[in-house]
Design a protein around this nucleic acid. Structure first.
Lengths: 192, 192
DNA sequence: TTAATAATGAACATTATGTACTGTTTTACA
DNA sequence: TGTAAAACAGTACATAATGTTCATTATTAA
């Protein structure tokens, strides 16, 4: 077995990226994503202007990169845990509750549209996979499948964000099972 | 009866506002809402910089104002046409189809989040009114009602946008009745 | 210890924003 | 049709963010 080349990331890079990411999260919660400028970020992170551009070329890239991504991926891996043909949102909501501040920054009203879209697309994709076999291969049926999966994804994210922004008034179990119910309802009833 | 004072809007104002609005719509379809600058708008509309600021203080205000609003209001008045406890989306979709280019600019992928939110909130509000009586006055039930109405609204808008962006592959009747079915399904099945 | 490289800070050109002011043109209305 | 009011164009200006470049300093991995 060949030894895996261990890539060591320079500590300076780690520190810089961490500072920038944390500054962005803070600033999103302070103002709102759209209103955060790169200038704000480098001021708050106490990082030189040119340093920012070494690593990123926009705040969008900054938001997508780094340990955010790790968290985001985790969110979705959880969706796969369910057995059978149902999607379980249990772990997703638990994970969201555990990372409330990050989730609010990324998905709340102050968070940019990009992250919400990203989440929505991922949920829709999972839904599409689960229910795909119920639709035949005709173009029309496939379009309907896509439309329904997107709509269900949008509904789930809306549910999730409402819950998150409203101090999580239901238990994770409760909100999660309603989400599952919602998706099932849409596919059983609307796909004819 | 007192004669209603007729307010005549200066022709110059009408012309200016129309030019600015049309420029914005065109620019949204060319680039995307976020990337349109006020500079772009006044260049395309061939209007002086100071003139813009006489009437509006941002592009958001421009988008919300004017005959756009007339159209938007029309969209939603149509939702009230249905008899009984169901919401009919028939006229909405017909109206959207008739104003395809405007609708795409406002609701499509290139359109800003603002208009989509606006639409979603309006649809959610109508839905809430229709189904409100099925929920008791307890805080928890009222929250669930709000969450469900918002989720249903999000699903409807997602459906609408998919349809609009995909060259409207179903008839207005078809897509509209699926929307209605979707809303009903959510409320019958998820509200327990 | 040292060669590599990341960060700093300053400078610079470019672009958008929002305001202010002057002079010109268009309008509503009497 | 004449006139006062207004909307407009055009210019100038201050402010702010963007993105790039470069010389210098510091930190790091080996």
């Amino acid at each position: 077995m060949i030894a895996k080349k261990e890539i060591v990331v320079d500590r300076r890079i780690q520190k810089t990226k961490k500072a920038l990411t944390e500054a962005l999260i803070d600033l999103i919660l302070e103002k709102s994503y759209e209103k955060v400028t790169i200038q704000d970020i480098i001021d708050k992170a106490n990082v030189g202007r040119s340093t920012f551009y070494i690593h990123y070329e926009s705040k969008e890239q900054l938001l997508l990169d780094g340990h955010n991504n790790l968290n985001v991926k985790l969110f979705f891996d959880e969706l796969d845990d369910a057995k059978g043909s149902e999607i379980s949102f249990d772990n997703l909501f638990v994970h969201i509750a555990e990372n409330q501040q990050l989730a609010k920054a990324m998905l709340g009203k102050k968070g940019g549209n990009m992250m919400t879209e990203f989440f929505k697309n991922n949920v829709a994709l999972k839904i599409k996979k689960k229910f795909g076999r119920q639709f035949d291969k005709s173009k029309k049926e496939q379009k309907l499948l896509t439309f329904l999966a997107d709509a269900a994804g949008a509904a789930v994210i809306s549910f999730l964000v409402s819950w998150l922004e409203d101090e999580m008034p239901f238990t994770e179990k409760e909100i999660s099972s309603r989400c599952q119910c919602l998706v099932t309802a849409i596919f059983e009833r609307v796909s004819k």
